[in-house]
């Protein structure tokens, strides 16, 4: 009899086993929904799958009676734009300061304690400050993501830069490279795939900040909609929105990984 720790499932079995928990959750939900509906037909807490489908149809495929827009897509577009802007700015800041501090000790000396201190400020605590300073428009929502995510990105990139083998930097110097050339040709190209890794890790936090900002002050966006329909206990809209956000987050992560594998094959060679 093979030991359990040595028994590896086949590919088919592995996929099947991976799917089972999801199917179980759906099944448990269906049973729960049916039980509640049997007791009270008007129950809103666990809407049936038909009601959820209806909710999706109303939001995504019927124009809004008030504005004539397709709210679901409008929300998606607004949220994704804010997220993309916030993440892009944060990634740029992370790359710039991370590499500068990671490769030049005289830059690291004043920057490192500051970044550590800033990264300890809970971003949501200064959200009111952002609203006061940047107003209630798009800028403050993007800024919350930037402020929430860039300290992590700077620290991570700084760390990755310092982790590059010392030997490589010495070698580059013996090839005649000056500081700028070495940053440009040796450090930067090797840090880019690591930046993608860091961005992937920070996506969860970015969504959190986005939804928080939208919940508090916004007129559209996925987070805004969820918090709006909460007032009517519209679980038939909240649940598909949550599933959609999860799907968007998963897709972004997957696309970034694919991109990294295609553009930086050498980085993924021994991993």
């Amino acid at each position: 009899m093979q030991r359990l720790i040595n028994h590896k499932p086949s590919r088919v079995l592995k996929t099947a086993l991976g799917l089972i928990p999801f199917l179980l959750i759906l099944l448990v939900y269906q049973i729960g929904s049916d039980l509640r509906k049997a007791e009270n037909e008007q129950d809103k807490l666990l809407p049936s799958f038909a009601e959820i489908a209806d909710g999706i149809d109303r939001m995504a495929f019927q124009p809004s009676r008030r504005t004539g827009e397709y709210l679901f897509w409008r929300d998606t577009q607004s949220s994704v734009m804010r997220l993309a802007k916030g993440i892009s700015i944060a990634a740029f800041i992370g790359l710039l300061f991370g590499i500068a501090a990671g490769s030049i000790p005289i830059v690291a000396a004043p920057l490192k304690p500051l970044i550590t201190a800033i990264s300890l400020i809970p971003p949501l605590a200064i959200l009111p400050v952002l609203f006061i300073v940047f107003g209630l428009g798009e800028l403050s929502k993007v800024m919350l993501i930037v402020i929430g995510v860039s300290p992590f990105l700077i620290r991570d990139i700084l760390q990755r830069t310092q982790e590059l083998p010392r030997e490589q930097l010495v070698k580059a110097q013996t090839l005649g490279g000056n500081s700028w050339q070495i940053i440009l040709r040796v450090i930067l190209p090797q840090i880019l795939p690591r930046l993608i890794d860091a961005v992937r890790l920070s996506l969860g936090a970015a969504w959190l900040f986005l939804i928080a900002a939208e919940a508090i002050a916004s007129t559209d966006g996925l987070g805004y909609r969820i918090f709006l329909v909460r007032r009517y206990m519209s679980m038939d809209i909240i649940l598909p929105y949550v599933a959609w956000i999860t799907f968007l987050a998963f897709t972004t992560d997957w696309c970034l990984l694919k991109l990294s594998r295609i553009v930086f094959p050498w980085y993924h060679a021994d991993r």
Binding site: P165, E167, Q168, V170, K171, Q173, T174, W266
Partner: peptide, 19 residues
Amino acid sequence: QEPSPERGIVFQKYSVFPH
């Protein structure tokens, strides 16, 4: 007092650029 092109080096590992 700094590495320069006059002195070439080969280390046991990490002498080449992976990218």
